[in-house]
Design a protein around this nucleic acid. Sequence first.
DNA 1: TCTGGGGTCCTAGGACCC
DNA 2: TCTGGGGTCCTAGGACCC
Length: 415
Amino acid sequence: MIVLADCNSFYASCERVFDPLLRGRPVLVLSNNDGCVIARSKEVKELGIAMGAPYFQVAARCEAAGVAVFSANFALYGDMSRRVMTHLREASPSVEIYSIDEAFLDLQGLADPEAFCRDLSARVERNTGIPLSIGAGPSKTLAKLADDAAKKLPGGVLVLHDDAARRALLQSRDLEDVWGIGSRLAPRLRALGLISAWDLAGADPEMMRQRFGLPVARCVRELRGESCLELEEVAPAKQSLCVSRSFPGELRGRDPQLEAALIGHVLRAAEKLRQGGLKAGAIQIFLETSAFRCAGRHDAAFRRLAEPSDDSLALSRICGDLLRGLSQPLCLYKKAGVILLDLVDASCWQPLLGSDEGARQRRSDLMNAVDKLNQQLGRDSLRPLAAGLLQARDKGKVRLSRRWTTSWSDLPETH
DNA sequence: TCTGGGGTCCTAGGACCC
DNA sequence: TCTGGGGTCCTAGGACCC
């Protein structure tokens, strides 16, 4: 039996944990630049505010309904996620952390899975303040579907005990509700007369493979109760890493702020490399104009490195070179990003013959020292001038809650 | 005025090899 | 007139996920 445990309205629930006045009130969390809606409490969903809606389109409605609106506070959400996952790991020896708010658990030979799930849900909520819903079934895809339905049930738990339960669930769900069937595939499947998840489960897997590819064929088998997707208890090594941001406004191709932003991104990316014990074999930068103006464009430049690197300064320099070759002076860019590719384990990679081992060691020591200082003094305390003078960070982010669990100065007070 | 960020997998087609 | 067979690697694009 595979179980999916999923936090309800995760980001919104995190905000509620430290502010009891928010309970029962509609709560909404926004993306970077306060651009889009990325999390909604049940009450906000009931107001008909869509996931991903641009905030400016729904702001008036939110105001009228007294919605509590927050800027994304990822320091808080990341730490709350870690707490939830700790409890899930205690509950089962095999756990796959699938996303910041979801995990699959393998429950073999459990006498009463339903009681187990109810107990788990209650324990996590009591110990972290985060409400869970739980679905269980013979495959990951069925567990996902069961969980989705469980969110609407009073206890928040749905276990597919037998074929009758599976059939009843599948007959009540649309194609798009199925994990792996998105907005492109669903209409093509409907054109074949497949309307419900049950119809998809009844399709011939081989025929589906030929017409739609392997993932859809697997999806069909999983819906039938045949487990095709393994639990990945050890996260597979990352292949690429991306840091990108939209600008609050737009920047011209030669604007120094554009280069500063991009260097900032590459520094963050290099820091992530070192945290993960990785080096990058190649780097790509990209610039995008607004997709909402006529003919949005995406420009990219790529370079393979002579040898894998996690060196902030070396990567920044390449990044600057690439940018000068790429940016169009007159273009108005809305977004910039850095992608590091061909990632390898920093501990098992062979240096070039004849390269200067001493210099490399000194540079590595320097990076470690920088990381350590930034950890102690706060992110970006020490960084190259090329990344620009530090802007007043989070300026105007009046909607940002405190870092209740990760910063001494933000600890909650009790009286 | 204002529209997020970060990933993976699969497939088809081209280049190239013997 | 007529032009093989079998393989790998790489890339771009499309689809999906949270």
